[in-house]
Design a protein around this nucleic acid. Structure first.
Length: 320
DNA sequence: CTTAGTCAAGGGGTA
DNA sequence: TACCCCTTGACTAAG
């Protein structure tokens, strides 16, 4: 079990960020290359910070390469920045970090509109290129939701299957499907797994909001069973709680320690990695790791760091 | 310098 | 048909 946070580090921000961008109207190869260089340097610093904090799981922001899948982008960024990607990947491999990405709502491979499907395929390929350039194994996943219903759920699921088969191999091999809170519960994701072999990421909070009556333990067992340790790594999950007083489905500002401790207790039979979808990011990740300190599943990873002076001879990284 | 409006992209719900 | 919501930070033009 590794516990992580998504995309931004509020402790290091705004000096360190992977989300620098610019307006489409200001696109130029120079502006693009400057921004990508800054974002990749931000990624390197965040990953190193995570290692020093014993945080073993991180979601890379889809903002890291601005307009990567837009027709305006004619730069082979994955080749030009090969060394920077490889350096980030080296940190991941040497420390044993888990990495994921989560394209946002616009990646819809089950849309009835062919143009939207084409743009979505380009978007997924962009994400795959990042993880490939970092030279990461199959445990580095790209998670998406099933998509829209378009008035006919069965037909929409069939389109997902047909278009999944059309994905370029680099994107297809990393794709992972996640239950959402409005349209597709975990049962539908499991159907896609049966048809395609795609692993199912269980979002516990979404499952509470949308399900077909399955108990959480049953949903977890079923989703965990779709993962293959050698090919796709340990099962992935998302965890959050309801923001008090917020719209239903809004993510909490900070970790609910009592809920998280109970969550760890009741999921004990299954080992998996946990992405905290909580607003204060790395702050809650550290608290969660503290709360999991006595849990036999928790990975306390080591940073070898033998060539890193700044590591100051330390090899055992405390997790609190 | 500060700040409010705006930003590539879709789907679904409501009026 | 038109508008709003999601969800978010960061850019940018206006003041």
């Amino acid at each position: 079990m590794k516990i992580g946070y998504p995309c931004q580090n509020r402790t290091l921000a705004p000096a360190v960020s992977t989300s620098r961008t610019f307006r489409l109207a200001s696109w130029s190869p120079v502006r693009f290359r400057e921004t990508v260089a800054q974002n990749l340097e931000g990624l390197r610093q965040i990953l190193e910070w995570n290692v020093t904090q014993g945080i073993g799981f991180f979601r890379i922001s889809s903002d890291i390469i601005p307009f990567a899948s837009h027709p305006v982008c004619n730069v082979c960024w994955w080749e030009e920045f090969r060394e920077e990607f490889a350096a980030a990947g080296r940190i991941v491999r040497e420390a044993g970090l888990r990495i994921t990405m989560h394209p946002d709502q616009f990646a819809l491979i089950n849309s009835p509109h062919p143009e939207i499907v084409e743009r979505s395929i380009a978007e997924l390929l962009y994400h795959a290129r990042i993880l490939d350039a970092m030279e990461l194994d199959g445990a580095a996943r790209i998670q998406i939701h099933v998509g829209g219903v378009y008035g006919d759920r069965a037909a929409a699921l069939r389109r997902f299957e047909a278009n999944w088969r059309r994905l370029p191999e680099p994107a297809r091999r990393r794709l992972t499907v996640e239950n959402d809170d409005r349209l597709y519960p975990v049962a539908d994701c499991l159907l896609l797994h049966q048809a395609l072999g795609v692993p199912v990421l269980l979002d516990f909070f979404h499952h509470q909001l949308l399900n077909r009556g399955e108990a959480e333990a049953a949903a977890l067992a079923a989703a965990a069973g779709t993962w293959d340790a050698a090919a796709s790594g340990l099962p992935l999950t998302d965890y959050s709680t309801q923001k008090p007083g917020g719209r239903t489905g809004a993510h909490a500002e900070t970790l609910d320690a009592a809920d998280f401790a109970d969550f760890l207790r009741r999921t004990r039979p299954v080992d998996f990695d946990i992405m905290l979808e909580i607003k204060d990011k790395e702050i809650s990740a550290r608290r969660a790791i503290d709360l999991a300190a006595g849990d036999p599943r928790l990975v306390r990873f080591r940073w070898d760091g033998r060539t890193e002076e700044r590591n100051n001879g330390r090899s055992e990284i405390g997790t609190g």
